[in-house]
Design a protein around this nucleic acid. Structure first.
Lengths: 198, 198
DNA sequence: AGTCTATATGAACGTACGTTCAGAAAAAAC
DNA sequence: GTTTTTTCTGAACGTACGTTCATATAGACT
């Protein structure tokens, strides 16, 4: 029986997901056709509709799965140490998670405007949940007197923007290891939100 | 005489440029048709080709003009004070310039992959020139002992990513003025690249 | 008024799109 | 080995795309 149910819990064939992922990342959602995705899987275009109701659900599924895995992985890892230790852990986690999934990250940032309004709201909600995790750490650090940020919400967005920026230049096999990149960025984050030097 | 020459110095009608700018920013290059742009100008699609050789040149012209204005404006403003003063000036300039041109900035970041290889190289070159301006400031500060960054190139990219991130959340008329935003980010930049507190 | 030049129209060209569906093929169940 | 279920093909539908061009319009110059 062909699958035609609502989009939220659809299971799309993994090979189709992977094909869509790499094509959307390389060419952009609007520039990729269902026939291209089908060709990459080795099938005719019509066959895709046994696994996904439409092209939009394919995009939404990729983004939702990525954001949910990001959140679940962080929540499973987040500890209850000092704000400083939790911030370091968040920083290293964020860089490592994002650098190991460059295609998913690229799509999650670039294709937001190609989501339907309802799907957009879902992804934005998940993104907000993730931002809240960092904001809570910063607020705890301010309360404890170890961080000095005038506006934790803005500092959250600034830190995340800085960290996610790694994806625009890092190439594995380059002159810096993942560990070194983590440490360089952690130095900057620590100083940026820490109590002022002078 | 219709304009059909090479793309570099074409002058595209300003009304067409503005229409393309707002449509590309809102829907993305691939999702906007020449007929939509023409409709926004109040003309039939064929008339656009009196002003631009093709759709690609329209995109490239927008991005090139934006990057060249960014560079020219900075170069006209950049002073020769202390590294700290120059960094503060760069920070405030970058935020102000980008926040007052949200559509151009959005396109310049999101539509890179829709440029032809030759056009992409041009835009990347201009972006590199701009990054070099900040990197030079950081290197001067390291040499003077007022900045502490292990890798000026990476610090450059990190700072620019952080600053450009403002565009994702700032809305004029919100609770923070442009001046306040500048100051908050300058605090973080100054601390992030400054000599360590402890 | 008449000529020339710049700009616009509107139809057309060939191609590609997302999606549907009857029927063929293949796999699973018995 | 036959039936039943699942999956795929291949053609088709209607629509839209970027671009071209013969023709019409309108303004500028003499």
């Amino acid at each position: 029986m062909a699958r035609t149910a609502g989009s939220h819990s659809d299971i799309t064939g993994p090979r189709i997901q992977r094909a869509a992922l790499s094509l959307f990342a390389r060419q952009g959602y609007a520039a990729v056709s269902m026939r291209q995705i089908a060709a990459q899987v080795g099938v005719q275009a019509g066959a895709l509709y046994n696994y996904t109701p439409d092209k939009q659900s394919l995009l939404f599924g990729l983004m939702r799965d990525h954001m949910e895995e990001l959140l679940a992985t962080w929540r499973a890892r987040a500890g209850s140490g000092s704000p400083m230790a939790r911030l370091e852990d968040f920083t290293r986690f964020h860089i490592r998670f994002h650098l190991t999934r460059p295609e998913e990250v690229f799509i999650a940032y670039m294709e937001l405007r190609n989501l339907s309004p309802e799907n957009f709201a879902v992804i934005e909600g998940l993104r907000g949940d993730y931002e809240d995790a960092l904001e809570e750490i910063l607020r705890a650090g301010v309360e404890a007197g170890v961080f000095d940020v005038p506006d934790p919400k803005i500092a959250t967005l600034a830190v995340i923007a800085m960290l996610t920026g790694v994806n625009t230049w890092y190439r594995s096999g380059g002159r810096l290891s993942l560990e070194e990149v983590e440490t360089i960025y952690w130095d900057m984050v620590r100083k940026a939100v820490g109590v002022a030097p002078a």
